[in-house]
């Protein structure tokens, strides 16, 4: 009985793995070890597996569980450089180039500055690769609202990234002046 449940669970999970992991990586950036988050969510998902409605995709439950976990636990947590390093090491072990890792981490960091709802929508749409309709189902919202969130999120993200670039170039110029 338990074995059968495990098999069913695993089959459902495998389909959701990639999107779920990308979501967790972006969500947990600097705040929690992704492994811990995945472990917590999997444990609760397995426990409630029989209660999860089979009509809705399993990934929806996983995404919601991860989000709820974030809300309940991380509110007071501060950024940890160790966790960021750990994430970089993991990606490095999967043959991802260091400059790419830096860019991705920069993106995650900038994403963290977006309003919550926009951040969620951007991660789910742009990084995890869900469709607008799926995101609307996960978030109990409408497609139109999600489109707005994604669009606003993109604009803000672009602005934040540009601001940081400008700030960086100004700092470099100042440094040059000091050096000269």
């Amino acid at each position: 009985m338990a074995e059968e449940k495990q098999q069913r669970f695993w089959k459902a999970y495998e389909e959701a793995h990639e999107a779920f992991l990308r979501y967790c990586s972006a969500l947990s950036y600097g705040k929690m070890d992704t492994e811990d988050l995945v472990q917590d969510v999997l444990l609760s998902a397995y426990k409630n597996f029989d209660k999860i409605s089979p009509e809705k995709p399993f990934i929806h439950y996983l995404i919601r569980a991860a989000k709820n976990r974030k809300i309940s636990i991380w509110r007071k947590l501060k950024f940890s450089t160790e966790l960021i390093e750990q994430q970089a090491l993991r990606l490095q072990s999967k043959d991802v180039a260091p400059d790419k890792i830096l860019e991705i981490q920069h993106l995650y960091q900038t994403l963290d500055r977006l309003p919550k709802s926009q951040k969620e929508a951007i991660i789910l749409f742009e990084i995890s690769g869900f469709s607008m309709r799926e995101i609307a189902e996960i978030q109990n919202s409408t497609e139109g609202a999600i489109k707005t969130k994604v669009s606003r999120g993109r604009t803000m993200l672009k602005r934040l990234l540009q601001q940081e670039d400008n700030h960086l170039s100004t700092s470099m110029n100042n440094l040059k002046t000091i050096m000269l």
Binding site: R22, C24, T34, V38, L42
Partner: peptide
């Protein structure tokens, strides 16, 4: 470009790793 990179890089934990953890 940045978003595409974030989408294309391998996931932090592979399916096997998650399976072992599970």
């Amino acid at each position: 470009n940045i978003l595409a990179q974030a989408r294309s890089v391998p996931t932090e934990l592979s399916t096997e790793e998650v399976r072992a953890m599970f």
